[in-house]
């Protein structure tokens, strides 16, 4: 009981910079989804930038926990992240708000694209605009990554750094299946990282 209470107290510490509303959740998620080219790990930092840094709707640690859960469930990571962040922010209604906002842009885009694929793929102006956006996304993504890394390094603990470096090497250079890596990291955490200093 004590632990559950502690969790809810911890969660309430999030300082809202903007009041929560379903329409705000829908609009911000819709725009992020509509303008983000690239997989789930491109979309997630943008969601974090919006919900955590800009709106203050949840805390950073909590958002990373939710992303871990989203990553460990089957399906697209971006969709899973929307489901769980929506749930955290607005319950079941929040889930469907965020889910619809995430799915609608690609649904609309791809339906249109499937009819006009030839025109679309050869239009130079469309490609120029998308290329520019791709560079913008790269800058935002790297900024988020650097901030998160600096925070891990500042903790001055060996295990998180080893996991971070090991996961990167295993995924990028050794091309080991991500689910297998996640499983190993989870086992390490389960046995060695229960101490509150790792929270």
């Amino acid at each position: 009981m004590g632990e559950i209470k502690e969790t809810s107290e911890k969660l309430e510490k999030a300082v809202f910079k903007e009041p929560f509303s379903y329409s705000k959740l829908f609009i911000s998620t819709f725009i992020i989804s509509a303008f983000t080219v690239g997989g789930g790990f491109v979309l997630i930092p943008l969601m974090k930038a919006k919900y955590v840094d800009e709106y203050g709707w949840m805390q950073e640690n909590e958002s990373l926990d939710l992303v871990s859960i989203a990553q460990s469930a089957p399906g697209a990571v971006a969709v899973n992240a929307a489901i769980i962040m929506g749930y955290r922010l607005g319950g079941i209604l929040g889930t469907f708000t965020a889910l619809l906002a995430t799915v609608l842009p690609p649904l609309i885009t791809l339906t249109v694209v499937s009819y006009f694929y030839d025109v679309f793929s050869t239009n130079p102006y469309v490609r120029m605009f998308l290329k520019g956006m791709q560079c913008g996304v790269t800058a935002i993504l790297l900024d988020v990554v650097l901030n998160l890394m600096v925070k891990q390094v500042k903790k001055k603990l060996a295990l998180p750094l080893l996991i971070m470096a090991g996961t990167f090497i295993a995924a990028y250079f050794l091309k080991i299946n991500i689910m297998e890596i996640i499983l190993v990291d989870a086992i390490i955490g389960f046995f060695l990282m229960r101490d509150p200093q790792y929270n």
Binding site: S72, V137, V145, M149, P160, A186, F190, M193
Partner: peptide, 21 residues
């Protein structure tokens, strides 16, 4: 413990996407 282990891993996976993009 599991989530503490996964948190730095998520940072690494985002970093990997960063390099790709």
């Amino acid at each position: 413990g599991i989530l503490n282990g996964l948190r730095p891993a998520v940072v690494a996976l985002i970093a990997r996407a960063g390099v790709d993009i």
